[in-house]
């Protein structure tokens, strides 16, 4: 099992697949993220591939403050991803709710809904920053971390459910 985990972690470091979700952004960060896929920045050249299905993805790139409408979707996508999974909150409003904080149908940052691993502030973030964030995430991804991560994911999911119940009551 140890070797298997190690292998997974090693493999992920080489070629992480990412999925992008707009949880209620202004599009600014989204187009900057898409920019990082196109010729000038081209993250594919370092093995990072964007993928449409959460089941195949290792990293969830999430932009925007979470709106009430997208909240369930976001949780659904996160739950569909296979562990170990990582979340990068891209943009100030993904980190804290930013300028939309306090709006009547905005929950706040991504971390109000799902656990976040890397916070990337900026309004809008630059494609270079997106690449740097992925790089930082991968380099902190050693084998112990993977193990811990899988555990904490589970714990977070549990606490999330209780959160959900709470908000449902509201």
């Amino acid at each position: 099992m140890g070797i298997f985990k190690k292998l997974v972690s090693w493999g992920q470091k080489k070629s992480p697949w990412i999925i992008h979700f707009n949880a209620g952004a202004c599009n600014g960060c989204d187009i900057e993220f898409i920019d990082s896929l196109t010729p000038k920045y081209d993250i594919e050249r370092i093995g990072i591939l964007q993928h449409g299905s959460p089941r195949h993805a290792d990293i969830l790139i999430c932009t925007g403050a979470v709106t009430l409408q997208t909240r369930d979707r976001l949780i659904q996508i996160y739950e569909q991803m296979a562990s170990p999974k990582y979340v990068i909150a891209v943009g100030t409003c993904a980190c804290t709710g930013g300028i939309f904080n306090g709006c009547y149908c905005v929950m706040g940052g991504i971390d109000t809904t799902i656990p976040v691993d890397v916070y990337l502030p900026g309004c809008a973030v630059r494609p270079e920053a997106v690449i740097d964030a992925i790089d930082k995430l991968l380099n902190s991804n050693d084998k112990d971390k993977t193990k811990k991560k899988a555990k904490s994911d589970k714990q977070k999911e549990v606490s999330e459910e209780s959160n959900e119940e709470k908000s449902d009551e509201q």
Partner: peptide, 8 residues
């Protein structure tokens, strides 16, 4: 889906 309540 992206309604953020901006006008308010």
């Amino acid at each position: 889906y992206n309604h953020r309540g901006l006008e308010k």
